[in-house]
Amino acid sequence: MKVTHGQIIARGLTNCCPNCGAKTLFKEGTWFELADQCSACGLRIEKDEGFFLGAMAINYGVTVIGFLSPVAILWYYGVLGPKLAIGLALGAAVFLPLLLYRSTRSWQLMLYYSFLPQHLPANRRELSALEDENV
């Protein structure tokens, strides 16, 4: 494989294109607008309608498990007062998903291509060349 699992994971964690490694997942100058395709290699970013529902699930899970649950546990054991716990929970429920938006979109691509690396154009060309040799 031209693009290895390690490269796919590293690129996913750094919000880069899983195919070529360029920082082109989002349109320049915007925080929320995903590019249709990578301007460096042409990889189509959004596979199908609803492809990034997984990113929403990841974002929700990280928010609830990573922050809201610890706040609830600290409140339950009396470490945090009720007003502080509610304030932290509400603040996290609003702002943490916004902060994680770009990362979770990239993590969704990372997970997809980690399981299906042959779907990357860089790896597909290599596989089709091998098939031609075997014919």
Rank of each mutant, 00 (worst) to 15 (best):
F52A: 05
G29R: 06
T63A: 14
A55T: 13
A55Q: 11
K23L: 12
G42A: 07
V94N: 08
S106R: 06
P117F: 00
L96N: 08
F115K: 12
E33V: 13
E131S: 13
M56S: 15
W107R: 00
S106Y: 00
A85N: 03
G91E: 05
L90R: 02
V135W: 15
Y77I: 10
A92F: 12
C41P: 04
N19K: 07
D132T: 12
W31H: 14
Y60K: 15
V62P: 07
A72N: 01
N15R: 14
C38R: 02
M56Q: 14
K47Y: 14
L13N: 10
W107G: 05
I9F: 07
L88Q: 02
V64R: 12
A93W: 02
L100N: 12
A10K: 12
A10Y: 09
I9A: 08
R44I: 13
P82I: 04
S103Y: 13
G66W: 11
A55I: 11
H5P: 07
R125E: 02
F67R: 07
I8E: 04
H5S: 11
L13F: 12
I86L: 02
D48Y: 10
Q108S: 08
N134V: 15
L98K: 12
P82A: 02
W31R: 13
N15Y: 11
Y76H: 13
L13R: 10
R44V: 14
I9T: 06
F26G: 00
W75C: 00
L96H: 09
F51T: 06
Y60N: 15
N134P: 09
A72G: 04
Y113W: 05
A129W: 09
L80H: 05
G61V: 06
I58D: 06
T14F: 08
E126W: 04
F26R: 03
K83G: 03
P70M: 09
A85M: 01
R102W: 06
S69L: 15
K23H: 14
T63C: 14
W31K: 13
L96V: 11
G21F: 01
L88P: 03
V3H: 02
L34H: 01
C17L: 08
G6H: 11
H119C: 03
I86H: 00
C20V: 01
E28P: 05
A10V: 11
N134H: 15
P121M: 00
V71C: 07
C16D: 13
L43M: 07
L13Y: 09
A85S: 03
L88Y: 00
T4L: 06
R124A: 06
L100H: 09
R44C: 10
P70F: 09
D36T: 08
T63D: 12
F115P: 08
C16I: 10
A10E: 11
G61N: 05
A122E: 02
S128H: 12
G50V: 06
V62F: 11
H5E: 10
L99H: 13
T63E: 14
D36M: 07
G66H: 10
G42M: 06
T24N: 15
D48G: 08
T4V: 01
N59Y: 08
T30E: 02
E133D: 14
L80D: 01
D48A: 11
G50F: 07
M1K: 05
A55Y: 09
M110V: 02
N15A: 14
E126T: 01
P97I: 13
Q37I: 09
C38E: 00
L43V: 06
M110P: 00
F32C: 04
N59D: 14
K23R: 14
G81P: 02
A57H: 10
C41V: 05
